[in-house]
């Protein structure tokens, strides 16, 4: 029944991708994908937190009473993020000024909660850690794809650098900077990847 590490990664990145298969973590994908730099920060944070909170929840899974498992999971995740947040703030405040706004978004990211509930509470710590990592990567890839479209269209830049020939072809498309742009991009990504998955399933039969 238990998955091998390879299967876990395939599931996290493609088959059960948290964004377009499980529809989790949408709020944060909307907020941060208008600039690629912000997206990378967020992606890294989520990967890190999902992996470690999955690990911790899995360690404690035999002791958590079923009735209050939600509270306990949320508590573990939030404490994790806050401790890391305070440490970064103390050690390097300049980096913290960049990533500070994401902290709240990471805590409320439902991917973390969803995986703690669906995977970590039934699997061993090591596998849960891998699952968290794989889900984080799957989430990151989708976000990066969206940011790769939104930043050039909205700002005419990539990673903050102006694109070549910007003056000639680029006209600011404000909707791409704002949230509706993220909704439409997310819809397109979901559509295309689901279509590909459907086709693969048909081909497999």
């Amino acid at each position: 029944m238990a998955d091998t590490p390879k299967q876990i990664f395939i599931k996290g990145i493609w088959k059960d991708n948290p964004v377009f298969r499980q529809v989790l973590g949408i709020c944060s994908s909307l907020a941060v994908t208008n600039l690629l730099t912000n997206t990378l920060f967020m992606a890294f944070g989520v990967m890190f937190v999902t992996a470690f909170s999955n690990f911790t929840v899995s360690l404690l899974r035999d002791h958590i009473p079923a009735r209050i498992r939600m509270i306990v999971q949320v508590l573990i995740i939030a404490s994790y993020v806050m401790i890391v947040d305070i440490l970064i703030k103390a050690v390097n405040p300049d980096i913290h000024r960049f990533i500070g706004p994401y902290v709240g978004l990471i805590i409320t990211n439902c991917i973390i909660m969803g995986r703690a509930e669906a995977f970590a509470s039934q699997n061993t710590p090591w596998l849960s850690f891998l699952d968290g990592l794989a889900m984080g990567i799957g989430y990151s890839l989708v976000l990066i794809v969206i940011a790769l479209v939104r930043e050039p269209m909205g700002f005419g830049t990539l990673l903050g650098f102006p694109l070549p020939g910007r003056e000639i072809w680029w006209h600011q498309w404000t909707i791409m900077v704002m949230a509706p742009g993220a909704f439409f991009m997310l819809a397109i990504v979901t559509w295309i990847s689901r279509k590909i998955q459907l086709n693969l399933e048909k081909g497999g039969k």
Partner: peptide, 9 residues
Amino acid sequence: GLAGPGITL
């Protein structure tokens, strides 16, 4: 492929 989350978004 658009049905479900896609169209809702």
